[in-house]
Nucleic acid binder design. Structure first.
Lengths: 364, 364
DNA sequence: ACAATCTGCTTAAACGCTTGATCAAAAGTG
DNA sequence: CACTTTTGATCAAGCGTTTAAGCAGATTGT
């Protein structure tokens, strides 16, 4: 049924004629050819600057002039038709609107695609399955070079069947049981970086407020936290790790728990949580970073850079995710070691972490 | 020079062959025709469900079955070629990445385009002029039905020359000296809504912290503020209006000034400013909304919905901007009264505004 | 029973472009 | 001077569709 429907035109009034007269009759190669008194073949040759084509200087100039005069634009559609392959890359995202993250992925993908002469076809599915199917169909029908399938937060995902009809790479998600190409953030690395920001400043008793909801990020960041502690020779204390809902309210609500723990620093699962935590801490009369060092995760610009004090955090490499996605798709990057490549989460140090003043002690 | 360059292929390795075998040899109509033992014309007729085509039930079924068997997908490129017009709509944005706003515009545009059977071609220029030219060229070459030219904040703009070659509409921006179609938020209306949130709760002495930087928003919101006051029979007091840089720091820094003013409520130019203001107010031991009612502007989800208390504000209709943009472009909406249509900014009431308790007095 | 009509399908041209094969004229060679 | 080569350009086929026009065979009207 659906496959049948996807073959037909959308059931809409198909007529939306241009009003701009210039748009009605695009200048074609034929007209240029006639104008310049040559054949279309010749025009094609000069337009494409074919190296092994032998065109007289005079003719070339004449053609170029005519092109300029007439305002000729090559018709990419026709070009694609004959070459068989389009220069499109599809990007289907599950949430363009809800978060600033998707924007970064689009941006990265688009920049990289551009570099290789490709153009982005984006579709937003807002998590809606039929919409997703239609979106993929549409891309397939436009004979895209491949599809980037992206999610707004790092998670496992099912691979829509239609994707298999072309090259594709998963972006910010992965398929647990398949060897599909994927590119995701390295959560473990990120957790380590975040924790190390704290360790470097001499903190030893470091809490980690993890998320309540299961996700690769939850496990990965925790592991990173543990690895960082271990590297620093600090014993892992399970008592210092607890969960909260990963938003502002969660962070605010975690303050009580946190203060019971006698720590000098805290690593929050994400920036939003840190934002709530700030509020709670301040309300208790505590100040940051003097009384408590805090680092977040995500580097959400709107928030992190402008909190008081600006929040030290770790950045999710969304832009890079998009860019690496198209590189993988086009085969300019080879996936090293397994089909899923992990991208580093770079630390972004701002002012929410100070030296540990509560104990000057450094273990050997 | 540039126009010449834009005619040629991007200077890159042009060969990025698909690795997916299924992608190499797309099934064509010819193959379906052969498989079903009919002509391509027939296949075309059944695929497109042409109403006035006379196809036998048996043949139709045979074709449909073959299509399914072979996994045929129509080639949209070829389709577009013959029909002369593509089903593309271009969207060039000056900042996809930097803000969550652009995402909403894209989302709205994409949804609406989809409804009419169109597909979005997006390009991010990040404010870079040559990139912008290339982006527009690329769209023109793909014979887009039209172009949406959008900016991430409401402002006047120059119209790139190439845009004139097709239908276009400005989104979130406008051209002061031209009658180009445009769709922008109604700042005056927004300012009025924001102020009225306060007025409705009985506030009479309402400050307005405007932006330091000139923009349609600055003037419009101020005017809206004045109109709302006037409607409520409150005299405008210039002393209650002052400027600050429109971000968190600006809001924070404005607290001193604000408190000198003896007001019960404040309307902030934007949410970020309100966020900083919250910090400053709390630091002074003041609580919201008891000691000060505050409303913001923009309805930046990440921020506004999760501040403590959640911020009452006014939403910028980004999604609608995108959607209305394509409607205008396709001619399904007619611009009423002048080429620039203004969209309402709906109020979003949360918990940062309480009743005015400082004075029970209501003027007649 | 014979023309008129209808039904079901095919033919062929066209859309704008690319490209290998050709070809005429100019230039180089012995 | 008769030849090969080079130069500068054209021819024509084809990319995957759509669609007006055409054409047999079946059905209908009288």
């Amino acid at each position: 049924m659906t496959s049948e429907k996807s073959l037909t035109e959308p059931e809409v009034n198909p007529s939306h004629p241009p009003t701009n007269p210039r748009a009605g009759h695009p200048v074609t190669m034929r007209e240029v050819a006639e104008g310049a008194g040559v054949s279309v073949a010749t025009v094609s040759l000069v337009v494409n600057n074919k190296k092994d084509a032998r065109i007289g200087a005079g003719t070339r100039k004449r053609v170029l002039d005519t092109i300029r005069e007439l305002g000729y634009r090559p018709n990419a559609l026709a070009k694609n038709l004959v070459s068989g392959s389009s220069r499109f890359i599809g990007l289907v995202a599950d949430a363009i609107a809800t978060t600033p993250f998707a924007g970064q992925i689009i941006h990265g993908a688009q920049d990289e695609a551009w570099k290789h002469g490709f153009v982005l076809l984006v579709a937003n599915t807002e998590g809606n399955e039929p919409v997703e199917r239609d979106a993929i169909s549409m891309m397939l029908e436009h004979k895209v070079r491949g599809i980037l399938y992206s999610t707004w937060f790092h998670r496992p995902t099912e691979i829509p069947a239609a994707l298999q009809e072309t090259d594709f790479v998963l972006v910010n998600c992965f398929s647990p049981d398949s060897d599909a190409l994927a590119v995701v953030p390295d959560e473990v690395h990120g957790g380590r970086e975040a924790t190390e920001i704290l360790v470097r400043k001499g903190h030893r008793r470091i809490a980690f407020i993890n998320a309540t909801i299961p996700a690769p990020a939850k496990d990965g960041r925790l592991q990173g936290y543990r690895e960082a502690l271990e590297s620093a020779g600090i014993a892992f204390d399970p008592h210092l790790v607890f969960d909260a809902y990963p938003d502002q309210e969660g962070g605010y609500g975690a303050v009580e728990e946190l203060l019971k723990r006698d720590v000098t620093a805290v690593f929050c699962y994400n920036d939003r949580m840190a934002m709530g935590l700030y509020d709670g801490l301040k309300q208790k009369g505590l100040s940051i970073p003097e009384d408590m060092a805090v680092v977040g995760f995500d580097n959400q610009e709107v928030i992190a850079a402008h909190m008081r004090p600006p929040l030290s955090t770790v950045a999710l490499p969304h832009y890079e995710l998009g860019a690496a996605g198209v590189r993988l798709l086009l085969g300019v990057d080879e996936p090293a070691g397994g089909p899923v490549v992990k991208l580093e989460c770079p630390p972004v140090e701002r002012d929410s972490v100070g030296p540990n003043t509560l104990t000057g002690s450094r273990l050997p």
